[in-house]
């Protein structure tokens, strides 16, 4: 079937978009979705090319002691050689679909900015070749802050049980694919507990509690955004702590600062903790096709059957080299 767990993500996110346009009368514009996809892929390509040239140059410099002629004609042609440049289009598409699902804008230019910042962040905010901001998240936060015409509609997924089941089912499948279900569980568990305590203390009836948790946007976030294995902590213990911290901050921002988009701010603010946690608890980092001991426990056969010859793996190796 699909060889890369990201293919499943693309499939499911697309399904949600189609469902969203079909059944929820959002301000979802197909042209904005196309713009988001195009921008993310293009940015990914350009950034990957730049990275490739810089790496090639550095390698040349190391090999030959020659730092001149940084980019020659032959190298320029390499820009179109995807097997060399290896732009991770799948990741870019996932980011663009995530943006399309969560972000609302008035103008195409804002979506372009969100997409460009999202993908660029992967190449800029990284330590030891690991980016620590979730691309779609930083894209959303950036345009919320920098532009006048971007917003997030937390209520637009409604709270139907049907959606809950659909999200939980398919999302669960995906996170199992990528082996970070523990993050989702820790986040949702901690958040649900905090809300339960607050609900009990305030004396609201429990349907208020369920209504607060039944938010489609919250689940979408928990299942698809904070599970991105490339930007979250490597060790399980640190993922627990990290997810719980985000839940706590979300809870505070939502209930005491009344910010409707609390989850996105919480993730943005705490993303750099990944670096700290990774330095404290070390574990092999995640790659999309490779299995490693640290998470085989979570994902067992799904990743084990993924082919190891995929380009990404080569990239991983080259990065190691």
């Amino acid at each position: 079937m699909l060889k890369d767990a990201r293919d499943y993500q693309i499939l499911f996110l697309s399904l949600f978009l189609v469902l969203g346009i079909g059944t929820r009368d959002w301000t979802l514009h197909p042209e904005f979705i196309l713009v988001a996809i195009a921008t993310c892929c293009l940015t990914q390509w350009v950034a990957a090319s730049l990275k490739y040239f810089i790496e090639v140059d550095n390698k040349d410099a190391r090999d030959n002691g020659n730092t001149e002629g940084l980019i020659d004609t032959k190298n320029l042609a390499d820009v179109f050689n995807f097997s060399l440049v290896k732009p991770a289009f799948r990741s870019a598409i996932i980011t663009s679909l995530g943006l399309s699902l969560l972000l609302r804008v008035d103008h195409c230019s804002t979506m372009v900015l969100a997409g460009a910042i999202a993908i660029s962040s992967k190449f800029i905010f990284k330590i030891k070749d690991k980016h620590f901001f979730n691309p779609a998240n930083i894209g959303i936060i950036a345009v919320l802050v920098l532009t006048q015409d971007a917003w997030v509609s937390p209520g637009q997924w409604g709270e139907d049980w049907w959606y809950l089941l659909l999200f939980a089912g398919t999302g669960g499948l995906i996170v199992k694919k990528v082996g970070r279900w523990d993050t989702t569980a820790a986040f949702l568990g901690a958040y649900a507990l905090l809300e339960a305590i607050r609900n009990f203390w305030l004396g609201w009836t429990w349907d208020v509690y369920w209504h607060r948790l039944m938010s489609g946007s919250l689940l979408l976030f928990a299942l698809f955004m904070i599970t991105d294995p490339r930007s979250i902590p490597n060790a399980r213990i640190s993922r627990y702590l990290w997810a719980i911290s985000i839940a706590l901050l979300t809870f505070i921002l939502r209930n005491y600062f009344f910010i409707p988009t609390a989850v996105f701010w919480a993730l943005f603010a705490l993303a750099p903790l990944t670096i700290v946690f990774d330095s404290i608890w070390q574990a092999p980092r995640f790659s999309w096709q490779e299995t490693s001991p640290s998470f085989t426990e979570n994902l067992t056969l799904d990743l084990a059957i993924a082919p190891k010859s995929a380009p990404q793996m080569e990239r991983e190796k080259s990065q190691v080299g």
Binding site: T27, R104, D106, T147, Q148, D149, A150, W151, S153, P154, T205, D207, V208, W210, H211, R212, F258, P260
Partner: peptide, 17 residues
């Protein structure tokens, strides 16, 4: 009562459509 258990929360958006 049964369909709207929680008080209404609002936000203003940048949407000028």
């Amino acid at each position: 009562r049964d369909k709207f258990p929680e008080d209404l929360m609002f936000q203003e958006t940048a949407n000028r459509k």
